[in-house]
Write a protein that binds this DNA or RNA. Structure first.
Lengths: 233, 233
DNA sequence: GTTGATAAAATGATGTATCATTTGTGTCCA
DNA sequence: TGGACACAAATGATACATCATTTTATCAAC
């Protein structure tokens, strides 16, 4: 499975290790690198077109945000997925949403509201998928980014960057399950109604109970989608 | 400030990078390495008695759990502290405690209860400080570990290892503030009553409201202690 | 065929050398 | 005095070589 051919294109001021880290994160989250897959350092060197050290640094960084696991003297591998893990992840997201959203609604000011509106607008504008020659339903990075930004905007006023960071990590982990499900079920899944508008409305109405309920339902739906795939895999 | 003289003593099966990572974490949390301090790779090499690569790996790992920050091409430094950060950290801890403790009490079984009792017993047995020639109030690693274990035992049954991991990270960050305060106020602080017994009792009574209130008060007290030091520093 | 020992290959971990960038220092000139 | 520039030193980042450990292949014995 050799992908990502282009070697070491990075912005100036950015280090190779950082560039590889970003690409590695993306590849793991998008499941271009399969869960549980062994990550041989020398393979990744070829893949990303850099030397041993940058790859190693990137792997070490990725270890601590749960996307990559490491075993001393036995190297690295992409974090495995499981029904159990998905359940625990969803639980964490739902419980965290409960407090983050509540606090955010409680303390959010006008700027916060406007941030949500703007984020939602961008999300609406971005095409869900990107037209592509090889794959009719290629991931659209712009939509992915907008999606992440929208969810973050909801809890942005919770008053703790620690909570925001944690929420971000959970989002990434969940996103991986979403991509996994998407990969296994390209066809046959009827397009489901977009839950984001309702969520936004409830939040802007400052209805804590309803907001939390809708957001948790949103998380649950993603989880169930992933569960189906894991169950038959 | 040269400390930690002994070079590279590590368990077999453990890699040098892992050993350095553990010691680095400890040094940052215990504030043996001051917040905001520049972390020159070559200095750390001497300090820990290992080569460049293991130190670099350790630094990269430490980056992602918030103890060490990194700026491309400008190296690493210990995470800074601030009143703002302490406030946000405390808020995160209190809110997370709210859900974790509630869930833990809701789903905890007999084994969970026993785990708490055992952890508390060990905490009670461990001397708060270690008698030492140089420093009358040297940190006792056994107490520190028991303290961490006790707090973890409370929320152990929350049903999500993601939540437990996050809680652990927050604990470490808060622990650093505690050590910081302790360092600046060795004398003159009257010994305050230990809040742990009450917390345990409330949890074992399965009194969610009281448990959460007590635990949050516990966090607040630690925070206030830290605030005083930050205010005059 | 299975098991267990052995050897060969692959891979991870680390030390050393080198390159690139930043940071510090001093000089010149307004 | 103070700022801009040039240069030197320090430091971070990376490549490469080498060592240690694990994994895989091989083969003999049962």
């Amino acid at each position: 499975m050799i992908e990502n051919p282009d070697p070491a294109s990075r912005k100036s001021g950015e280090t190779q290790a950082s560039a590889v880290y970003a690409r590695l994160r993306h590849d793991v989250i998008s499941t271009a690198i399969a869960p549980g897959q062994k990550l041989r350092v020398r393979e990744l060197c070829e893949r990303y077109g850099v030397g041993l050290n940058p790859v190693r640094e990137a792997l070490n960084r990725a270890t601590n945000d749960g996307l990559v696991r490491q075993s001393d003297l036995r190297g690295f591998y992409a974090a495995p997925v499981s029904v159990q893990d998905l359940a625990e992840l969803t639980k964490a997201r739902c419980l965290l949403a409960e407090v983050c959203l509540r606090e955010s609604i409680l303390h959010g000011d006008a700027a916060w509201e406007e941030g949500i509106v703007v984020a939602f607008h961008r999300l609406s504008r971005a095409p869900r998928y990107e037209p592509d020659q090889t794959d009719a339903y290629a991931i659209n990075p712009a939509w992915e980014a907008a999606h992440r930004a929208f969810h973050r905007s909801l809890v942005a006023a919770c008053g703790s960057s620690w909570l925001l960071d944690m929420d971000g990590h959970l989002f990434d982990a969940a996103d991986r399950y979403r991509h996994l499900a998407r990969r296994s079920a390209l066809t046959g899944t009827p397009a489901r109604p977009d839950q984001h508008p309702d969520i936004m409305q409830a939040v802007l109405d400052r209805d804590v109970t309803r907001s939390v309920a809708l957001l948790q339902a949103h998380y649950q739906r993603t989880a169930e989608h992933g569960l189906k795939v894991l169950a038959r895999g």
